[in-house]
Design a protein around this nucleic acid. Structure first.
Lengths: 224, 224
DNA sequence: TGGACGACTGTCAATACATGCAGCTGTCCG
DNA sequence: CGGACAGCTGCATGTATTGACAGTCGTCCA
C-alpha cells in the first residue's frame, strides 16, 4: 500500500484524525470544507477520495461521516507501547536482531501512520533540508521496497544510510536533502541495495542546541 | 451524576460502544433501530436521550451520528506518560487552558530533557533550518524567561510563534531559522512579550511527504 | 388511583450529507 | 506539445438523519 501523501493530503488526514480525536466522530465534507476555507465541498470530497485511493482511510458509501482510518497493520511482536532503538548494525545481520537493539523508547507507535517498527539514530547533516538532523531518532517502518520520493533507510553492505529514494529502471539514486552532499548512485545490476524501511516519523529529544544548528559542513541559512 | 442504567439502556450503550469500536463511527438512530429490531426510530431516540440525561453519552444537536461517549478516558491522561496537544490559543487565555487542549499524546515525557509540559503544532516554514517543519509537534517546557539562543514559544497578543530568542537590553529579537523570513524585533519598553516556554524536543508523526519538503516560499536548495 | 417513567409504534418536516457532473488552473513528465 | 494529476469552484439531486408530535402498554410508587 502506498502511503505517500501530498502535503495537502497530509493536512486533510491530520484534520480528520484530530476531528475524530476531539469530536469523537469523523468530519463531514462540509466540515472539512469550512475548516480549510474551501468554497466547494467537492474539494473535500476529492481529497477524501485521494486518501481512500492511497489506502490511509476508508470511505463507507452512503453513510454520513463514513470515514474510517485504516489503522494499518503492526509488525514485530511487542507491547505496542514502545519502540526499539536500533544502534550499530552489523553486516549481514537483520537490522532488528536482538544484538543491535540498544534500548527501548516508551512511545505509542500508534501515533505514527503507518506504525513504525523501530527507531534509528540519525547521523550527519545529509537530510537537513527534510528536517532530519543528527541525533534525531527516525521512526522507521520495515518495508522491503520503496516508492520514488520516499525517505528510506537503505543498506549497502555495512553502511546504513537515510536518503530520499529515486529509481529509474535499474538505476537507484539515494538523494540527500542537503546541497552539500552528493547523491549516491547505485546500479542494481551490479550492486546490492537493501531497503530496510521507510521513514514515517521523527523524534527529537535532545532539544535545540546552539544559536544556529551548528553545521558540521557548510553554512546553514545563508544559502542564498 | 447518576450512572445507573436500566438493562435495556445498558444494551443500547454497549451497542453504541461496539459500533464505534468496530465501525469507527457512532451509529445513527436508524442503525440502532434495525440492530434492536425496533419498528420506530423514536425508540432509539428515546434511549439515546435517556443515556444523555444520565450523562454517559453526549448528543451533538444537528450533527448526524452526533453521539459522544463521556467515558472518562481522560483518566489515562496526566499519568506523566502523556502530553497534551495545545491547539488554537485564545487571546488572554493561559496556553494550557482546558479548552485549548486538543488531545493527549502517549509519550513518556521523561524522554526529553528537560521534561516538556505540552506539545504545540508547528505552523509555517519559518524554523525550517532548525529542522522544525509545519505539522511537527513541538515539545515545550513552560518557562517564563529565556536565554539567548534558545528556541522559544512566544506570544504577542493573539499570535503564538516559535522562534529563536535573542535579547540585548530592552530589545528582543525573535529570529526565524529561514532566510525567507524576517526577524521580529520587540522593544520591551513599548510592547509586551510573553514567553510561553522553551522548545525541548520534537515529534513528527506525519511522515515525510512530497519529494521535497514542499516549500511555501523559496527554493529548498535541492530543487535543481 | 393517578402520576412518573421505561419502552415502545407511527408519521412527518427540515436539514445534514454524500455524491455526481462540468469546468478551471497549475505542475510535472515523457 | 499533450496528458495525467493535484487542487480547486459551482451547482444539483437524492438520500440519510435528526428531532418533534401524538399515542399505547406496563410497572413501580406515594
Amino acid at each position: 500500500m502506498d502511503f505517500t501523501l501530498t502535503p495537502r493530503q497530509q493536512q486533510i488526514l491530520d484534520f480528520v484524525r484530530r476531528h475524530i480525536a476531539k469530536q469523537g466522530i469523523p468530519p463531514t465534507r462540509a466540515e472539512i470544507t469550512t475548516a480549510f476555507g474551501f468554497r466547494s465541498v467537492t474539494a473535500a470530497e476529492d481529497h477524501l477520495r485521494a486518501l481512500a485511493r492511497k489506502g490511509v482511510i476508508e470511505l463507507l458509501p452512503g453513510a454520513s461521516r463514513g470515514i474510517r482510518l485504516t489503522g494499518d497493520e503492526d509488525a514485530a511482536a511487542n507491547d505496542g507501547d514502545s519502540l526499539p532503538l536500533v544502534g550499530r548494525v552489523a553486516a549481514g545481520n537483520p537490522i532488528l536482531a536482538q544484538e543491535s537493539v540498544e534500548s527501548w523508547y516508551k512511545i505509542d507507535r500508534k501515533l505514527f501512520h503507518p506504525q513504525p517498527d523501530f527507531l534509528l539514530r540519525v547521523q550527519g547533516w545529509s537530510m537537513r533540508d527534510a528536517g532530519i538532523l543528527p541525533g534525531d531518532l527516525l521512526a522507521v517502518k520495515r518495508v522491503p521496497t520503496a516508492q520514488n520520493g520516499e525517505i528510506v533507510v537503505a543498506r549497502m553492505g555495512e553502511d546504513v544510510t537515510v536518503k530520499r529514494f529515486e529509481r529509474r529502471g535499474d538505476i537507484v539514486r539515494l538523494l540527500p536533502a542537503n546541497p552539500d552532499f552528493a547523491p549516491i548512485r547505485i546500479d542494481l545490476a551490479q550492486q546490492d541495495l537493501v531497503i530496510e524501511g521507510r521513514a514515517v516519523g521523527l523524534l527529537r529529544t535532545g532539544g535545540f542546541a546552539g544559536p544556529s544548528p551548528a553545521p558540521l559542513h557548510a553554512d546553514m541559512s545563508s544559502a542564498a
